[in-house]
Every structure is written in structure tokens, then in C-alpha cells.
Design a protein around this nucleic acid. Structure first.
Lengths: 303, 303
DNA sequence: TTGAAAGCGCTAACAA
DNA sequence: TTGTTAGCGCTTTCAA
């Protein structure tokens, strides 16, 4: 490559890295031309070895149900990271072994990492690996590490509050089926129960396939673990019974009547995650106060 | 590290790479002990530079709706790749720009790549990058490149065939709402239309929110684009109307009555993808006949 | 404005 | 059985 342009390897490096001050316009052109005709791409491994850092950011995704919430989360943060010039790649925590994430970090030496606190490799190992920025999903692992928490328990709280405001005093909660969703469901119920106790709401909990049994208790409103369950239950509800789902799925928006649902985090919040990571990598000081991504009600026509 | 164990760097390399023939048991122990106490991890960048290959496999995920099908696909193939010793990472094609995948490949130099044919960087570039194995999702980009196709159109075919076998002659198709799902829906309808024409079935197509309108045509069976739509429609169906969904979602299995649905690919098929890639990377000869992952009906209680 | 050269951390061929 | 050393492709300092 250097030979083809008739210059030294150093000059090529300067041109391709945009250190314009150093090379004359003529040489620059010549180098770029040669690079184009040869289809030259710098070897990122060599560059990373020399520079001590890569451009990769690993986003470690916890074992959440793959659906609209995760889609939003990824397209927001991954999209923003890409725009900032990084190479965002997603690691599925549950698809590999317990120390899969650590192995992945050892192998690609990401400059940044977004990971659930529960799957986070020891911080000192990461730092030794050249990881400059670390952001966690969930509680901060130690002071100073920025964290973003999707407040799952607040989903239940917000739902009950919303219904209570509208005068409902007897709410049926449709909880998830299937073991994968169980922990998430329990988390949301904790918030719902607390809010119900606080607001004087009677809460009946039944699994999603026990709708008929639940309806026997004559609730005036139904809170469903997700929009899928909500939409499934909708047509079996007696007239006048309110319904609120969770996830702000595309389906909820398109349903007739439009389903009232709960959004778990905003695109802006997810982009903010990416920008925080970027600031850390750049060595800027960052406000490390844990960020709580609080769910909010998307008002539809069913409550 | 070498110093700490009192041996040469070469010896450390041999021990850690399991070239046992070369080192004595004593030295081996000493090196491993030193590695443990120092928390030493080889620098994968340097190793990759030297070896000319990484352990990374990029799985480029097309713009498919994030749900049970993708979850299955990933946990099958990613899990298997992990087990084979690779470092599988997922790239979301739609979250980055049009040549995002190529940039990602340039930056991490994956030894293997699974990508939709439509997003595949030029093969010669990949090969120049050190990518030894390439498998596509969709039609093969050129002879000899193994490919796996999720036959989306066959979803419709299989659904109509299943219903026709059970004597249905007037089927209502509930098509997706939302632009993201539109292309997939159209693909499935193509198959459904062809099968309907062939088998003498009358097919009525309405969007998922037009169920009432569709039911006015008195269908004896309903085919839904996905399980979410199917479960949403279920309770509005007149008694005796059959129902088949798509995706084999957890929800379909847990519904009462259990929903008949269509599975789009098996875990075994997905693992096979991973093994094919592995064989290619190892330089073994591989049967490159395009593999069609044919959908199949999961019999429930609604047809 | 440009070239020469050191060195990032590792592996493998060769020497001892 | 072990050590020495060249070199993977790049960036960056120093010298010209």
C-alpha cells in the first residue's frame, strides 16, 4: 500500500487517520487514490494492538423476553453508539455460559461495555482489558459507575396508580405464564401489591390462563403483565371493565380500541445511556447518579 | 508474566495454548500458578494479529420482529457457537447504517459470519479480512456458500394446507399491522394465496384490526400472521371456527385451549447452521446445498 | 513535508 | 526441554 502510493507507511497512516496538518494536499490525494484502487482497509487488529484500544462496545443483554421493549432498548442505544463511531455488538448473556461475558470481553477488548450488574465481570479485570467505559443495567456495582435501571417494580405501581386515579378499587392482575417470564412478573407484582395496599385497592392475582376464574371476583379493571396477555383477554372482559397492558407494543397501538399500556423506557433514555458511555470513554467527567428509567402510562382507550 | 514464572515468553505461550508436548510437568505447573496469581489473560489482539484470525463470529440479524422466532434462532445458533469455542456476537443490521455490517467486519475481523444475503459485504472483502466461514440467511450469494432459508412463504402454504386437510374451504387471513411487519406478512400471504388457489380454498385477507369485517364473510377457519394476533382474535370467534397462529410462541403453548401454530425453524436447524460454519472455518468440505428451514404445524386444540 | 525505526504482545521456527 | 528471535500491521516519535 505504502509502496503503491510511493510514500512511507507512516504517511499512509497519517492520511487515513485524518492528521491533515502533516501531509501536503498532493500526497494526500495520491494516497487516497491508491487506497481506493487497492481496496485497502487498515488492519484493525494491528491498530488496536498498537493503540491499546478497539472501537467495539459490547452490549450484554440480560435474559429478558425478546419483544418490543428490548427492540426499543437496542435500537436506541445501539443506533446511537453506531452514530458515535463505535462498533456496537450484542452479547446474549443467557445463550452462553456463566462467564461467557468475561470471555467475550477478553477476546474483543471492548472499549465500552453495557451489561446487567448481575453479569458484570470484575471491574478491575475490565479496566485491565482496556475497557474505558462501563455502564450497568440495574444497580451500580460500586460508587462512580453510571447505571440505568429499568424499574420493573414501578411498572406495577404505575399501573395500579393509574387505575386507582380512575376510581377502580378492585383490580385483577394477569400474571405471566412460562418460567422465563416469572421473575419479571414477580418484580412487577411487588410494586403493584405495595401500591394497592397504599391506595386501598383490592388486588387479585391470577395467571394469564385463569382469566375466567379471576373475573368471578368481579374486578372493575384488569392489569396485564404484557400487551400480548392484555390483548388476549380483552374480548372476554365484561363491558365497562378497564384494561391496562404493559410494553407499549406496536400491537397495542394498533388495537381497536387502542390499548392503554405502559412504556418501560424512552428512546431518549436509551440514547442517553450511549452518550454516557461515550463520555466515559472519552475520559470526561460523568454524573454517576443512578438513572431510573421510570415507566409511564401510554393512555389508550381501554382505561 | 514470563519473568514471574522464571521462564521465557515462549514457554508461557506454549503452556497456555496447551502444547503440552513441549513443556515439562513442573514448568507447566509453575506457569499456570503464576498466571493464576497474576490474573494474567493473554492479549487477544496481539494473538489475533499474529495468528491472522480471531475467535469472533458475527451473527448479523436482519430486520425481523424481535420475538420468539428470533429468540429461538439466536439461542440455538449462538449457544452452539459458544459451545464450539467461538465468541459469538450479534450485529443488528437495521440499527446501523447500510454498510454497518461491513464496518463491523473490518473492525473485528470475525473468523465466521452469519448474515442475511441482502446485507452481506462483498465476499472477497470478507475473505481478505480473515473471515474463513460464511453462511447466509436467505438465498446463497454465489455457488458454494452454504445458506439457510427460513421459508416465510411456506408459512402461508403450510397453514392453508393444514386447514384444507381438515375440510375448511373458506379461510380468513389476519394480516399484520405496522409497517415493520408488512414485508414479512406479504411474503407469507403469497404462499397462502397459492395454496388456496391450488386447493380450492376461498381466502379473505383483512388486517388484524378488521376482524369483525372479516367474520362477516363467514369463514370456517382463521389464519393469523402471528400468535399475538391469533390470541387477540380468539375470543371473538364464533364457536366452531378453527384458528391457527404463527411463531410457536410460549404464549401459544400456554393458552387454553392450546393454540395450533406454526414453528419456523427448529433448534436443531439452528445448531446445524453453527456446525456448518464451524466446518467451514476448519477448512473442511461442506455440503453447500441450500438448506430450507421448512415451517411445520404444531398441533394445538384450535384446529 | 516526509522517512526511518521502535515497539504494542503474541506465536512459531530455529538454536541450544 | 527450554530460550532466542523474527515478525504480524500499525502508530508515533525522532531525525532529516
Amino acid at each position: 500500500m505504502a509502496a503503491a502510493a510511493g510514500v512511507s507507511r507512516a504517511t499512509v497512516s497519517y492520511v487515513l487517520n485524518g492528521v491533515d496538518a502533516r501531509v501536503s494536499e498532493g500526497t494526500r490525494e495520491r494516497v487516497l487514490e491508491a487506497a481506493r484502487t487497492l481496496g485497502y482497509t487498515p488492519n484493525a487488529m494491528a491498530s488496536a494492538l498498537r493503540a491499546g484500544r478497539t472501537s467495539v462496545v459490547i452490549f450484554a443483554l440480560p435474559n429478558w423476553p425478546l419483544g418490543p421493549v428490548v427492540a426499543e432498548l437496542l435500537s436506541g442505544s445501539v443506533g446511537e453508539l453506531d452514530r458515535l463511531g463505535y462498533t456496537p455488538l450484542v452479547h446474549f448473556v443467557h445463550a452462553s455460559g456463566p462467564d461467557g461475558l468475561q470471555r467475550a470481553c477478553d477476546r474483543v477488548r471492548p472499549v465500552g461495555l453495557i451489561a446487567p450488574t448481575s453479569a458484570l465481570p470484575p471491574l478491575e479485570l475490565l479496566r485491565a482489558n482496556g475497557t474505558r467505559g462501563i455502564v450497568t443495567l440495574g444497580p451500580p456495582p460500586e460508587e462512580g459507575v453510571p447505571s440505568f435501571t429499568l424499574e420493573q417494580d414501578r411498572v406495577g405501581t404505575v399501573a395500579i396508580e393509574h387505575l386507582a386515579e380512575r376510581g377502580h378499587t378492585h383490580v385483577l392482575a394477569l400474571t405471566p405464564l412460562g418460567s422465563q417470564l416469572q421473575p419479571l412478573g414477580e418484580l412487577r407484582l411487588v410494586g403493584a401489591r405495595a401500591a394497592a395496599a397504599r391506595l386501598g385497592v383490592t388486588l387479585t392475582e391470577v395467571p394469564a390462563n385463569g382469566l375466567a376464574r379471576g373475573l368471578a371476583r368481579k374486578p372493575t379493571a384488569v392489569y396485564a403483565f404484557n400487551d400480548e396477555i392484555a390483548l388476549g383477554a380483552r374480548d372476554s372482559l365484561p363491558p365497562g371493565v378497564a384494561l391496562i397492558g404493559t410494553d407499549d407494543s406496536p400491537a397495542s397501538r394498533l388495537a381497536h380500541p387502542r390499548l392503554t399500556t405502559i412504556q418501560l423506557g424512552t428512546s431518549e433514555g436509551h440514547r442517553e445511556m450511549a452518550r454516557t458511555l461515550h463520555a466515559l470513554i472519552e475520559g470526561r467527567d460523568v454524573d454517576a447518579t443512578p438513572v431510573l428509567l421510570t415507566p409511564r402510562v401510554i393512555q389508550g382507550e381501554t382505561t
